[in-house]
Amino acid sequence: MSFPGHYTYWVTIFLMIAGLYIVIARGNLVKKLIGLGIFQTSVYLLYIAPGKLIGGTAPILAASFHTYSNPLPHVLILTAIVVGVATLALGLAIVVRIREAYDTIEEDEILEKDRAEEAEE
């Protein structure tokens, strides 16, 4: 139960916080999406790391192996990665449309334009 013993958790938590920070602090829509990607990646680690046993192998039943790593997290995370890719792709697509419509991808500039439009009405 020491710091190095938990280092995967520390990495996970670092990625999580870093990702969230980028999402919140950056005004650039693409950078936000990158932050979101990092945030999601931390979860992959959260699942995969505990599944591994030191000395364990892939779960192929054979006489010479006795300890196996848990395969389920891998499967789950494969799914999660697919979801993450889809989210990212959709997010980027929306950003492309936003750029077409507003001519910028900076959040504050977009809001500025919206306000200007509202004032005209």
Binding site: L36, I94, A101
Partner: peptide, 11 residues
């Protein structure tokens, strides 16, 4: 504005 709304909701 729907685009930004969708984006914010996505995030």
């Amino acid at each position: 504005r729907a685009l930004l709304a969708a984006y914010q909701y996505l995030v």
